[in-house]
């Protein structure tokens, strides 16, 4: 039984929570507001809170640096790597969830352990392999790397979702005369759709924000938004409004996806250790 909480107490906590939340969100809010200011307004003193709502910066960013090429690089790389990873991971997770052997647990742990390898540990050989195979600064090269680094998480997430599907139901399908592919298509996949969808969502987010390989293995052609934004790091004149516009565009889609996936986030990021 939930107890009746006094309204005054609730109001106090509400005020406190909102203050903390707004402080944490402030940098993002400020970036979005700044993106609609002129460069003069962006550095005005005292700071201007309400912008003049110009979209000049967005246009400028696109014209000067071909923003949408980087945007679509990010889309291809994150969505592409996630889809490939799903394709490899679904059969694998299905096998481990429904036909466990004494070694299944070890295999899963081993897969997770590949995720523990620090990227810098293999930066040198990866860079050389990419250079020698012509994969440097290509979208497909990065897609492969991001598929590999996120594959363990994809398998783990799917595995934890699949395990919640009762084996009985798959066996019932078999008893009902379903052969393997029918069992997968008519029974497993429809039941697993929510799990597969949130796995997809979380991995697109992770791949979109990956900022080690995307920066080190691209130059300009295949650079996704992470690498593109990083190029703003050298201070050069008055560019905050434009930086804010580029940043807003880079974070907006993923922020929305993130909000949509927040319920599944914990479980995905802790490999099912916290539900």
């Amino acid at each position: 039984m939930a107890r009746q909480v006094s309204t005054r107490r609730k109001l106090a906590f509400t005020a406190l929570a909102w203050i903390v939340a707004l402080i944490l969100f402030f940098p993002i809010l400020w970036t979005i507001l700044t993106s609609f200011k002129t460069e003069q307004e962006a550095i005005a003193s005292p700071p201007m809170i309400i912008p003049s709502w110009t979209i000049e910066n967005y246009i400028e960013v696109q014209i000067r640096s071909d923003y949408f090429r980087h945007f679509f690089n990010s889309v291809w790389i994150s969505v592409g790597s996630t889809l490939i990873a799903l394709l490899i991971a679904i059969p694998s997770a299905w096998a481990m969830a429904f036909t466990p052997t004494p070694r299944t647990k070890d295999v899963l742990m081993w897969m997770l352990s590949t995720k523990m390898m620090p990227a810098v540990g293999v930066l040198v050989p990866m860079y050389l392999i990419f250079r020698d195979t012509g994969a440097l600064d290509t979208v497909w090269g990065l897609t492969i790397v991001l598929t590999l680094i996120n594959l363990p998480i994809v398998i783990w997430m799917l595995y934890t979702y699949f395990r919640e599907i009762p084996v009985d139901i798959l066996e019932a399908a078999r008893m009902d005369g379903a052969i393997l592919w029918k069992e997968l298509v008519y029974v497993l996949v429809p039941m697993a759709v929510p799990g597969i969808a949130s796995t997809l969502l979380l991995n697109v987010i992770l791949a979109w924000n990956e900022a080690f390989w995307t920066i080190n293995l691209t130059a300009s052609k295949a650079a996704p938004l992470t690498a593109f934004i990083s190029s703003f790091s050298s201070p050069q004149g008055l560019f905050w409004a434009k930086l804010s516009a580029a940043s807003t565009l880079a974070i907006a889609p993923i922020l929305v996806l993130g909000w949509l996936s927040q319920k599944q986030l914990v479980r995905g990021l802790t490999f099912g250790a916290v539900k």
Partner: peptide, 13 residues
């Protein structure tokens, strides 16, 4: 053969 399971194992979707 046909089987009826303890959990009924109906297809929820």
């Amino acid at each position: 053969l046909a089987m009826v399971f303890q959990s009924y194992a109906l297809y929820p979707h």
